[in-house]
């Protein structure tokens, strides 16, 4: 694996992790959009419908919906179903608060179009750096 790309964003929650990217072009509503018992996206019409967010680096534009969504992220983390890290184009308060209380490394102001499903990614939350690794 070689580091194909280094992206610089804004640090939101510190922490350094490596994982596989799951990328969506649609906003995610954590309240109602995700099954808290399985970590699966259950919002019909969502491009990630049926996919599990457990242990992935979840890349999406921003959150939407009720502030209760923050608590959902906390609960997912407690049950071991949360993503390893969150990357947003532009963070919204629901996801920011959720990532803080659930202690999920998070970076925003990243052009997520540069990231493809299945890319291996390293997130450095403290510095706001995202490294994308690809192929040989």
């Amino acid at each position: 694996m070689i580091s194909a790309l280094t992206l610089k964003g804004r640090p939101i929650v510190p922490g350094k992790v490596r994982g596989t990217a799951l990328v969506s072009t649609k906003p995610i509503s954590f309240l109602g959009g995700i099954d808290v018992n399985t970590g699966t996206i259950i919002e019909r019409d969502h491009d990630l419908y049926g996919k599990s967010i457990k242990d992935v680096i979840l890349c999406f534009p921003h959150g939407r919906g009720s502030t209760v969504g923050s608590f959902v992220l906390y609960r997912l983390a407690k049950s071991g179903l949360a993503p390893k890290a969150i990357i947003n184009s532009i963070a919204d308060p629901v996801v920011v608060v959720g990532a803080i209380i659930a202690n999920i490394p998070m970076v925003d102001k990243i052009n997520i179009e540069m990231i493809t499903n299945g890319d291996v990614i390293e997130v450095e939350g403290e510095e706001g750096i995202v490294r994308v690794f690809r192929g040989e």
Binding site: V36, T67, V68, F71, Y74, R75
Partner: peptide, 14 residues
């Protein structure tokens, strides 16, 4: 975020 109907179990944990 006080009604159990609106916040559910996730919030109780927190």
């Amino acid at each position: 975020g006080v009604s159990y109907k609106t916040i559910g179990d996730a919030a109780i944990d927190f």
